[in-house]
Structure formats: structure tokens, C-alpha cells
Design a protein around this nucleic acid. Sequence first.
RNA 1: GAUCUGGUAGCUCAGCCGGUAGAGCAAUACACUUUUAAUGUAUGGGCCCUGGGUUCGAAUCCCAGCCAGAUCACCA
Length: 503
Amino acid sequence: MQHLSEQEIVRRENLQKLIDAGIEPYPSDTFDVNATALEIKTNFQPGSEQYQSVSLAGRLMSKRIMGKASFGELQDATGRIQIYISRDDICPGEDKTLYNEAFKKWFDLGDFIGVKGFAFYTQMGECTIHVTELKLLSKSLRPLPVVKTDEEGKVYDAFTDPEQRYRQRYVDLVVNSHVKDVFIKRTKMYNSMREYLNAKGYLEVETPILQPLYGGAAARPFTTHHNTLDMKLYLRIANELYLKRLIVGGFDGVYEFSKDFRNEGMSRFHNPEFTQIELYVAYKDYEWMMNLVEEMIEKVALDLHGTTQIKVGENLIDFKRPWKRFTMYGAIKHFTGIDISEMDEAELRETAKKLHVPVDNTMGKGKIIDEIFGEKCEGELIQPTFITDYPIEMSPLAKKHKSKPGLVERFEAICNKKEICNAFSELNDPIDQRQRFEAQLELGKRGDEEAMVLDEDFLRALEYGMPPTAGLGIGMDRLAMIMTNQPSIQDVLFFPQMKPEKP
RNA sequence: GAUCUGGUAGCUCAGCCGGUAGAGCAAUACACUUUUAAUGUAUGGGCCCUGGGUUCGAAUCCCAGCCAGAUCACCA
């Protein structure tokens, strides 16, 4: 038997009293709604014929009882609206039980109710529903946090404990309306991108999450086991290699919103499962893809906010095209004043030390450059900025640069000090790709747990021939954090990963 | 994984100088037919995260653990 608090006991008693009085606490009938709180508050004019016969449903969120009349608030999916209940209106006959007992005593905050009535403005000027019919739709047995807001919009007793908010997201959503807005924006972001990509004729596809070999990124995977096949399977860390197989198969453009899984550390920027969109377009290169990213993200900002300027923390970020562009060497030169483009490994290591960038002897040339960039440049990039032309060692799936030896045709977009996308001209030379995989195998043998594994079937596909292709990945959670001004990835995931409550 | 901070009523928090566990909201009872964080009066409500220790006595001090957040490390 679970331990019940005083208030939970009271609610269970109220439930029984309702049943005893013949009021069904969990009726099965439909309750037809013809208006929402938001549309009435937005559109209702005093004296208007409109909204004089409305039907609304939602949670009862407050009760102010004044004898034979009461005010309360009904919260539906669109927000809260005040309701006015007068005893003799909802109980026109002799029997006043529905008001005196049920509404005043047995209905609790959080109960779902349905009301019918008409809209009016109170003397205080509050848009209100004068209730003529009241029906209980579902009884609530646990007290919700009671969050109150005064006239100045100051919030009292806000439900703020992050642990409870994430564990009981349903409660968070009920009492913190701004949380709902974040998730609505997140969905709008997906819709906006789908719209953009569909309009270009690209095909949204689905590829395996359970994979016999993981690939397409440098990360440690989750493993699982299939009983019937008696084989080890991995949860995907990226869908890159599958989407490229589809380009081999003859699609010109494919994309997938891909739930990926990485068995690594957690932080306010990392959840073990997260979402990326990956897009592959045949006969294009990374320069072309950069323009697409700018155009698509600018559209997302406009669709979500009606402007390209978005407040994120202390910063105002402007997604208006064109974005700033730096080569990686150019960025390092810009932020440190040092030109490293002609340096060999020893000189780079010396430079890193001079800049107080920690390096060790296992790092090769590419890794050192990446470290310098991460330490000295990334943190400076608030406005969306493209960084292009990465060292080849860091990019085993990207095509060699057409004119700059040692580099690949790759770019990342950095925004608010974080990478939001990664793209390249895809490597489609199967012999080069095999060599790159073999180099990764060497890294793996030396203990790099994130090194890629060699995927023979993917190489076979490339050997049949893949057209020149531009590929893109965008971290949807990171982008959602920026687009909704949230400081933690947990705030843009409905149910972020957590340890169990009880050991 | 490391460091710091926190865990007390349904919610937000005080109490930490060791000596009967507190406030506001919510709940219960009464009053009130246009209120605005409604109001007034009264009442009830607690495994003070868990387990050890110190002490005559621990929410409070010490140790260990659990859970969370922040910062850092790896990474998207």
C-alpha cells in the first residue's frame, strides 16, 4: 500500500463522496468542445453575440468561493480563462448538491471539468465564462503545485526543482506554461525544416536504428542483443552510411530526423539519446550545402520568431544571411594572430604550448589544430559562423580538398560557442575510403574507443559508384536550445535521461 | 569520472549557534452573489534523502552512500 499524504486522502474521500452522490468521477462520454480559452480571450468583444454559447474543457486550476457564487480558472491546452459559477445557475431546481457539495467541497484543483456557458467581462474587466452547466470529466487524486501569478506577472511558488520537473514532466507542463511553449517551438522547428526540404523535392526516409555495425561518427555505441538471430546489435550513433547507400541507389536527395545514441558522458549539452537531421544531396558539394544551411536556418528563425534575431542568454543572435565564413586556419589567425597554415607537426606543438593549449604526444597534426581551434576560437563565436576546410585526420568520411593538400572539404557552423552543424563533400572514392577506414582501425588498435569500424557493405556500395554528394548533419537538440533560449538540453527534451528515483 | 552546491509539509523556502519542527501558498471548517496572488477567523498536516558515528540529546556536527544541479573533462 502506498503512503498517502493528508491531501491525497482528502481527494480519495472526495472521490467516494462524488460516487455516493451519483456523480461519475471518470465518465466515458465525450464532451464536445467548441472554443478554447485563448481564442475567447483574444476575440471576445463586450456585447458581442459571439461566444454566447461556448463549451470548454480543461483542468480546474483555482477556486475562489464567495458564498453562493464562485470564481475559478479553467486551463485548457491553450491557457487559462476565468469561470464564474453562480449556485442558482448551475442548480436551477431545489437540489443544490452540485454547487454546495460537489463544486465547493469535492472538486479539487487539477480536476478535469467541462463547462457550458457564455462569455462576459466582469466589473474588473476580466474576460470570464459565466457557467450554466458544469460537469466533472476526470478526478485528480494528487495535488498539483499551485503556482500563482499577480497583476505584474510576478510568479509565486513556481515549480522549479529541476529534478522534479524532469522526472514528472507532465506536472511541469501543467503548471509551467512557458515549458509547453518550448516544446511547441521545437515541433515547429521540425515542421519548418521538413517544409523547406520537401519543397526542394528531397525524400524523408527511415533507416535502421538497430545496426550490426555502427558507423558515421566517432563515438562509443550502446550494444544490445537479438535473441532469435543470436547476434550483437548496436544502437546507431549516426545514420550517415545508410543514407549514402540510398544515394548510391539512385535517390537525388534524402534526409532523416534520426534519433542517435552515444554511450558517453552526460552534461547540459549531452543526452545519451539525441536527434540529428542528416541530409544528403547528389551532384552537390559543401559550398552549395553552406548556402542551403544558411537559407534553411534563417527560415526556421523566421517561422518561429518572425525575425532573424533571437535572444539567447545575454546575446542577440542574428541568423540573417549571409553568415560569416572563416577557414579553420583563417579563424586561428584571426583570433590568435598566428598563421599556422605552413607549420609542420613540431611547430604546431610548439605553437600550442605557447598559446597554453594542452597537447600530448599522442596527438597528430590534425588533432593539435583542432585543439587550438577549440580553445582559442570556438568560444569567441556567438553569431552563426561557418568554419571551413578541416584537417583530413579528423574527417575520415569527407572528400579531400580540391586544392588544399592535407585538408578536406568540410564545414561546421558555430553559433553561441557551440557547433550546430557539420557537413562535407562526401568521400565517394571507394579506394580512398577503404584506406581511411584502415587508418581508423589502426587508431582503434591503439586504444581509441571512438575510432570507426570498417564497414565492408558500405565500401561495396561505394564501389558500385556514388555520385558526388554533399552531406549535412544538424544537432536538433542544440538548435532547439538556441531557438528557444534554453540553457540545458534537458529543457528541450520531454524526458531527459535520469537515474531511477529509488535505488 | 573530478570539484562545488543542494535534498525539511502537496509546492516554494526558513531553521544549521545541537535542546518540543516553522512560514506563505495548498488542504480542512465557517462566513461571503463580479472576485484578482480574493478576504477574514479557526484547524490539521512531517521517516527533516538513507545508513552509521559523536553526544544526556542531532534536521543541525562528523563519516559513508543515494539522487539532483552547476563547473570541468570526453563528446553533438
